[in-house]
Design a protein around this nucleic acid. Structure first.
Lengths: 308, 308
DNA sequence: GTCGATACTTGCTAAAGTCAATTAATTGTT
DNA sequence: AACAATTAATTGACTTTAGCAAGTATCGAC
């Protein structure tokens, strides 16, 4: 069943399609002045990028009517852009290749297309260009069913990531549970302390990232020599549903074991169901629970432990 | 001059254009089975989304030949999809509107297009859909020449914004000046204190935002009853060059005046040329300067003051 | 060899789009 | 107010683009 959010996203995609249709139309305008139609240009492009392919291949790739394509190829042969030699293996097919003249024609089309795109990108600063291509790569990866989905990666924090943690925690818990700014302050305090008294041999932070965009985090910090604390576990909505929370916690546990801690503790709230489940699955057990009033809400705080 | 990186990005954009061309082609296939051509469908879409517009507007929007468009409209009128009534203000033009039948035709096209997009998105998890639409929004924002730089607005902070300040400061100063994480820690500390002991009557923070995306910030906090401190002024690269820094500082000064402070002080570094200029322009004067070693760098700290 | 499928070709046609000339109304100029 | 220039829309003549269907040669399986 579709919910309003789904509808919003569909509408957004359709708006983008309209936007990009006209954008591509603008870019194709150069072709109107060339002696080739859009289909012809696409055929030339395919020919330039495949050595000695058959008409069939091109037709399949560009989804062109075989009759229409046949005539296009015919015309190219007549104009001396394409050479056609019979394929010994199958004499119904021909091996098509661009001639020198054909490659020249391609080079011209290619240069025009290149320049058009370059012109479109010129007003953008380098950072903006990067964001543009990153966004395009994201779209391609998501919509290309053949391509593997972008895997989330866990990595060490980089400059700005601690701030990102504060931001995502502050925004998420305010949005989803109505917590007030004292929570964001608490998180800021935690990350400040982490940065200030960071002990690389016994403490660590991981950022989960998809397509170069952070979507989750967790921290393991020293309590005392025996006890580590797991803190600030969060996966943003965009990263949910692929086991990232589990991976982050698993990473913490593995690291804690390697460090020689005997126990991991953590403090969480009863209403955070998803997090609770992750802790449970990882072997944590609930050892204490008490109501408190914080972050503008009445909550039930819970302490969980995992013996290593 | 183009460097290899630029070329890579251009190639990436062109690859995306080819990819999305064929993707849009697939989506438009439904139209082949409808009684309307792509252009006709686009005209119907425009008519459905503008009340009583003229042929001229549509032609401009869709970049259609006036003769061709005239015939399309003619056909729609003949088929009873569109009503045409003369525009009193200019009798060369006509006001075009979809009739009930026309709206029905639109509804059908719209539904088909909607369903196609919905089908395309179905295999994606919710998080993936979010990333898809976010990526599309990024592309639109970057490429839309009409609103390339939407006007920046200054607003009060919202949940997550304090974290954003930490993130942007941490990332910017690391990238641009090589400052280490102790700086990000300092910022986290400052925002934590701000949130914890915030005095709404005498303290304030502003976020500069373009298109809903934060690009800058500043804070005015209480030193003592007479002296306010200006802190954490920053405009991200994407927001620079439009006087946002000046606006943020001006906002602080106005607020400080209204609060009855006698003086604003601030601490900055000699290497931050852009910020220095902003303070100078606003009337601040340099009152002290001393070298120090912080954030992994050798810096010259400066204290500036503005008497109110 | 026969049969069905495949790779293309050819003839025919319709749809889609362009161009130039025309009309009618509006705007700007002196 | 008269006149030229411009604009919105229309019309006729035309080309290009595209798609279908029937036809030909070849291939692969039995």
């Amino acid at each position: 069943m579709l919910v309003p959010d789904d509808e919003d996203r569909i509408a957004a995609v359709r708006a983008f399609n309209r936007f990009y249709t006209s954008r591509l139309g603008v870019l194709d305008q150069h072709l109107l002045k060339s002696p080739y139609s859009l289909s012809e240009a696409r055929v030339i492009y395919e020919l330039a990028n495949r050595e000695g392919c058959s008409a069939k291949e091109i037709g399949a790739e560009l989804d062109l009517d075989p009759g229409y394509l046949s005539r296009i190829v015919q015309k190219f042969v007549d104009d001396g852009l394409v050479s056609r030699k019979p394929l010994p293996a199958d004499r119904r097919q021909h091996q098509l290749n661009l001639t020198a003249k054909g490659r020249q024609a391609f080079a011209k089309l290619d240069r025009n297309s290149h320049d058009d795109v370059a012109k479109m990108m010129r007003p953008l600063a380098e950072g903006e260009q990067r964001r543009l291509t990153a966004a395009m790569a994201t779209i391609e990866r998501l919509l290309e069913p053949a391509a593997p989905r972008a895997a989330a990666v866990l990595r060490e924090p980089r400059p700005g990531d601690m701030g990102w943690i504060v931001q995502s925690q502050g925004a998420c818990y305010a949005r989803e549970y109505g917590w007030d700014s004292s929570f964001e302050a608490l998180v800021a305090d935690i990350v400040a302390k982490f940065l200030n008294s960071f002990d690389a041999s016994r403490e660590r932070c991981w950022i989960a990232e998809i397509d170069g965009v952070p979507v989750g985090s967790v921290m393991l910090v020293r309590g005392d020599d025996e006890v580590a604390k797991l803190r600030l576990l969060l996966v943003e909505p965009t990263g949910r549903g692929q086991g990232l929370g589990h991976r982050l916690v698993a990473e913490c546990i593995a690291f804690a074991r390697a460090c020689g801690y005997r126990k991991i503790t953590l403090w969480t709230q009863s209403i955070l169901i998803a997090a609770r489940k992750i802790y449970q699955d990882a072997g944590f057990v609930l050892v204490a629970s008490e109501p408190h009033r914080s972050f503008g809400q009445s909550l039930i705080g819970e302490t969980w432990e995992l013996k290593l």
